[in-house]
Design a protein around this nucleic acid. Structure first.
Length: 513
RNA sequence: GCUCCGGUCGUCUAGCGGUUAGGACAUCGCCCUUUCACGGCGAAGGUCGCGGGUUCGAAUCCCGUCCGGAGUACCA
């Protein structure tokens, strides 16, 4: 039987990294097993419904490269893929009748106030809080009929069996069991006629032939209800896989309060989809050996359910940054430029930086200025149009000293301006050297020609010759002033390479300025 | 309160009865070198939450305990 899994988000807001990990594991499993990955929208809560949310999901998933075989945007043999539409189609109404007829569900007419009082009483008496029968589980048919005749609003609850053990076999955690008496009777159909997750999701999983219910561990508590529901219908139970969650720095469930949890924010900050996938996959999963940096193909070929781990993991931004740098370094300058151009023009990159407020500026440094970051990136676009080869050469020199796509803006800036902004401290130290003017004139008078390699070798030899002729034992006093004059900075690519890329004209112009 | 899940260097992890407890990020040092990176090498960092067992032998199995987390909605 082919593996079939589903990513079933509730369209209430943004797609955050926790949900992404959930989606990623399923995607990887489906790909690895040659199975199917299904997208289903669980929009049964009308009060929390957010119409922009579904688009956010589709955009994010597309950016990150998680694909589906069936879904609302794709169609498929089990359409519709939105629960609100499935409700309209009468799927749940029909099935709840089956349950009612079997006695596996019952109507409950409790008012909200009654429910509140019940919980208050339970709390006061240190009892388990929940609906363990209430007034309606064992109500007579007459009482139910009378309440219904009065037109009183009701919900339909699942009649959890009593006095039994409910056992599930979780693929990651093994056997988990509950006394059924500790499981409360969940609402299956709300007063507005909409099904709850507990009902709609299980029904859909059954009819969509889902083989593995993969979800976050926060669902373990409701697993016995779900198992009991499958049993009540007489349906075979799918395999339960309760994945560990990703938690924030404080060890609590990751939420919007922890800052950048929106996946598209990572896109906007210049993280590569492959790096994000690689990183996210490594929280809670490991290939079993020591490999960590993986391409998407490797991720797919190495992904096994048995590599899943039970304990929650923390989100370590440093490691993401390292991995992102690693993946950037795997790319050719050409591929980097294409990626960069796409990145810079993405609407979410632009809105992110335009509205960026640096909430945690690095001490002693000015806060990050989003608009300035965008301006630098735009310079790359501009130059790529008029001189792609030049930009490519500049990128090639910076690839190994960059962690995100956004970093390229600053890294490459000095190549793309008429005159570099000189760091005052660097100028004070190196441009005040007595031999500086003479040195610069000497270099300007001896331009290189030929290929990049030849030019690099030329400047290498040239500066060494200057050092020798003028009695400098070390190259530092020659190299540093030149670097500051040409780039405005004390750090950056090898000086000779950078000179070769700038070329004789720009060199002369900057040196003699 | 009740129910369940989890617990190996700061962080992510390997480990499945016999390992000097391995790797990665971060940190520090050295090498490379014109700087910054990259890369290479190395160091520091873990009494495997704790306490009992079982065993010749336990991070690994059992019991207890502590701590952390989740659920406890007509949300998912």
């Amino acid at each position: 039987m082919p593996v079939r899994v589903r990513f079933a988000p509730s369209p209430t807001g943004l797609l955050h990294v926790g949900a992404l990990r959930d989606a990623l594991f399923k995607f990887l499993l489906a790909k690895h097993e040659g199975g199917e990955n299904i997208l289903r929208i669980e929009d049964t809560d009308r009060s929390r419904y957010n119409p922009e949310s579904e688009e956010e999901f589709i955009t994010t998933l597309k950016w990150v490269g998680i694909t589906f075989d069936e879904g609302p945007h794709l169609g498929g043999p089990h359409a519709p893929y939105r629960q609100s539409e499935r409700k309209e189609a009468g799927i749940y109404a029909e099935l709840i009748t089956v349950l009612l007829d079997k006695g596996a569900a019952y109507k409950a007419f409790d008012t909200p106030q009654e429910l509140d009082e019940m919980r208050e009483f339970q709390q006061l008496n240190k009892l388990a809080v929940g609906y363990y029968g209430g007034n309606w589980r064992d109500a007579s048919a007459e009482a139910v009929a009378a309440a219904e005749a009065e037109g009183r609003p009701f919900v339909i609850r699942q009649r959890i069996p009593r006095g039994e053990k409910i056992v599930i076999e979780d693929l990651i955690r093994g056997r988990i069991e509950w006394e059924s008496d500790t499981i409360d009777d969940p609402v299956l159909i709300k007063a507005d006629g909409m099904p709850t997750y507990h009902f709609a999701s299980m029904v859909d999983d059954h009819f969509m032939e889902i083989t593995h219910i993969m979800r976050g561990e926060e669902w373990i508590s409701s697993a016995p209800k779900h198992a009991a529901l499958f049993d009540a219908f007489g349906w075979p139970r799918p395999i339960f896989v309760h994945c560990p969650v990703i938690v924030g720095k404080d060890g609590k469930k990751l939420s919007k309060r922890h800052g950048a949890t929106r996946v598209l924010d990572y896109a906007a900050e210049g993280y590569l989809p492959v790096a994000l996938k690689n990183f996210i996959a490594l929280i809670g999963w490991s290939p079993g050996d020591d490999t960590e940096a993986m391409t998407e193909e490797e991720l797919i070929s190495k992904f096994r359910l048995s590599g899943l781990q039970p304990s929650p993991g923390r989100f370590d931004l440093d490691k993401l940054r390292w991995l992102n740098g690693h993946h950037i370094r795997q790319m050719s300058p050409n591929a980097v430029l294409d990626e960069l151009l796409a990145y810079i023009s993405h609407p979410f990159t632009r809105t992110y930086w335009e509205n960026f407020v640096d909430e945690e500026p690095i001490p002693n440094k000015p806060p990050k200025d989003g608009k300035a970051i965008l301006a630098r990136l735009d310079r790359i676009v501009e130059w790529a149009e008029k001189d792609r080869e030049y930009v490519l050469a500049a990128l090639a020199l910076e690839i190994e000293r960059v962690l995100t796509l956004a970093d390229f803006g600053e890294a490459v800036e000095f190549f793309l301006v008429d005159a570099p902004t000189i760091d005052p401290k660097a100028a004070e130290k190196w441009l005040t050297q007595p031999h500086a003017a003479d040195l610069f004139a000497f270099i300007a008078a001896n331009p290189a020609s030929g290929t990049f390699e030849e030019a690099t070798a030329h400047y290498d030899a040239l500066l060494r010759k200057y050092a020798e002729d003028n009695g400098f034992e070390k190259l530092g006093p020659i190299v540093h002033p030149t670097r500051v004059k040409l780039t405005g900075k004390t750090t950056g690519p090898g000086l000779f390479e950078l000179m070769a890329v700038l070329g004789p004209d720009r060199l002369r112009e900057r040196l003699l300025a």
